[in-house]
């Protein structure tokens, strides 16, 4: 007689290979389940146990999770897009057009990347407002609010740097306008603009710098602060339960 799926999974967890990969939590007791989270590099950022009511939709509207979901879609679609994209003038524009019309599933990946980027900016703002209006930024969670502000800025910079990469008219003039806004900052503005663009005009250097920022520097920064953000949720006592549950 065939074993049930859960029995097969239990058997799998008892195999030597499984136990060599996952150091703890191979059984089905509560302790084992807790260890499965606590002993895992990725899962240990999160809490071992959460209150049932903090998982209710109305508490968070799942906005933080949705932001993370958008970020994962952006990484998963962005990396394949890099394989067909040369950050050079004028090849970048031709590559973007090729992604739309020549590359199999290219238009799907590109549009998914673009819409997820728009969605992520929206979700990050919504998440911020939700946290603000619930008062979830208050101590001991005030530092995680600061981390959140850093992540908001990184998100906006990712959105801005990605905007140049299609190298079309919209991209060119948007970055021209944006970088001229920057140069109206007193004293350091023009110098920062020069360093950002790698020149006086939006040109090949600017495209390459924005590409490196968009694909390497900013994603690594985001990943670092996302890890701190998640870890601090656990360290600060889990998701804010609301003012009616002070000691929960």
């Amino acid at each position: 007689m065939a074993a049930t799926l859960s029995q097969q999974l239990t058997a799998l967890r008892r195999t030597r290979v499984w136990r060599s990969v996952f150091r703890g939590g191979n059984g089905t007791s509560n302790l084992d389940r807790a260890l499965a989270v606590q002993q895992n590099l990725f899962l240990h950022l999160s809490s071992v146990k959460v209150r049932k009511r903090s998982l209710a939709f109305r508490v968070t509207w799942f906005l933080g999770t949705l932001c993370m979901g958008a970020l994962m879609i952006l990484v998963a679609t962005g990396i394949p897009l890099m394989l067909y994209y040369h950050p050079s003038v004028p090849q970048a524009y031709a590559d973007m057009k090729d992604l739309q019309s020549v590359v199999s599933a290219g238009v799907f990946l590109r549009n998914l990347h673009r819409w997820s980027a728009h969605a992520m900016v929206l979700l990050v703002f919504a998440h911020m407002f939700k946290v603000f209006y619930r008062g979830a930024y208050r101590p001991p969670r005030e530092f995680n609010w600061v981390v959140g502000v850093i992540l908001l800025i990184v998100t906006l910079l990712l959105s801005y740097t990605g905007y140049l990469l299609p190298w079309d008219q919209l991209a060119f003039w948007a970055i021209t306008v944006g970088s001229n806004l920057l140069s109206s900052v007193p004293v350091i503005g023009p110098k920062v603009r020069f360093l950002m663009l790698g020149g006086n005009t939006v040109n090949a250097n600017a495209l390459l710098r924005f590409y490196v920022l968009h694909c390497v520097i900013l994603p690594l920064t985001a990943a670092t602060f996302v890890a701190v953000h998640f870890w601090r949720i656990r360290k600060d006592g889990g998701i804010y339960p609301g003012k009616d549950h002070k000691h929960a």
Partner: peptide
């Protein structure tokens, strides 16, 4: 770093 990031020759 500042020196490295400022291009010395511009092909503009």
């Amino acid at each position: 770093g500042y020196d490295f990031l400022s291009p010395n020759v511009l092909y503009e």
